[in-house]
Amino acid sequence: MIFRARHLLGIEHLSPQEIVTVLDLADRYVDLNRRTVKQSDTLAGMTQINMFFENSTRTQASFELAGKRMGADVMNMAVAQSSVKKGETLIDTALTLNAMHPDLLVVRHPSSGAVNLLASKVNCAVLNAGDGRHEHPTQALLDALTIRRAKGRIQRLTVAICGDIAHSRVARSNLILLGKMENRIRLIAPPTLMPSGVQEFGCELYDDMRKGLEGADVVMMLRLQKERMDGGFIPSEREYYHRFGLDAEKLSHAKPDAIVMHPGPMNRGVEIDGELADDINRSVIQEQVEMGVAVRMACMDLLARNLRADRGKRAAEVMV
């Protein structure tokens, strides 16, 4: 078992072995979460602060539940509405929190790299819950766990990622993770929503969804942000649905046992057909949510172990 990281800032910094470590441990937490009594004392006595500079219901709930099930004291700070509006800088907010001695800091921020900046200023473990359009590592890990449980492996699969790739941190983290685990990645998007230079990542690019889905094992749909729907990047919602919305007909081009994923929240009838999203034979969207809690428990468990070891080492040095 290998996991050396002090913070979880992005998939970029994880090795394939570390990814496997997280997934293996998360599998055990899935079992725990399915019991009636879901308590463990892994994080007992530790303080977890969730700082969300961007509104979020699902991710924040998932992190909160993960912390509580492991016995941590969890505090949610709705920073989106508080001191930041009064002009306090990110660094000052971080230093203020740091003075309260948290052990785990879960941060979401609308600017890419903001979580890295924050992590350099505090002495606790920082988990990136999404920064701008940079990374969303726990989402990629929970997607990997979902795929591994459905397909039995997370190597040598053909994965199609489809939708607003340019603005998606989920897509970035996923394509880094899937690349590290040696999968074949296809990106399907209208050219206006495709990031530049992405062909150098070793992905195949498609602007025709049917061709892109040909023979895919996994179909990952991305959420189309409301503010990008009209005029700017795509002509209209209905044209987008016609060309890039996933329905049964388009899905028939993928492998017959291909699974359908979506990070949520979904826009039914924009990027995915409502009926298909609910089809328990194809869609693993609800399972993704379940895996989310387990993966976040695993990540916090591993980071807490490293944090304790780190502090133990420092205390020992002081004694000598």
Binding site: G113, R172, P195, S196, G197
Partner: peptide, 15 residues
């Protein structure tokens, strides 16, 4: 500047 690096870092970029 737009390209692989900016896309990886998720930064708004100019061609």
């Amino acid at each position: 500047t737009s390209g692989k690096f900016a896309s990886l870092r998720g930064l708004p970029a100019v061609h």
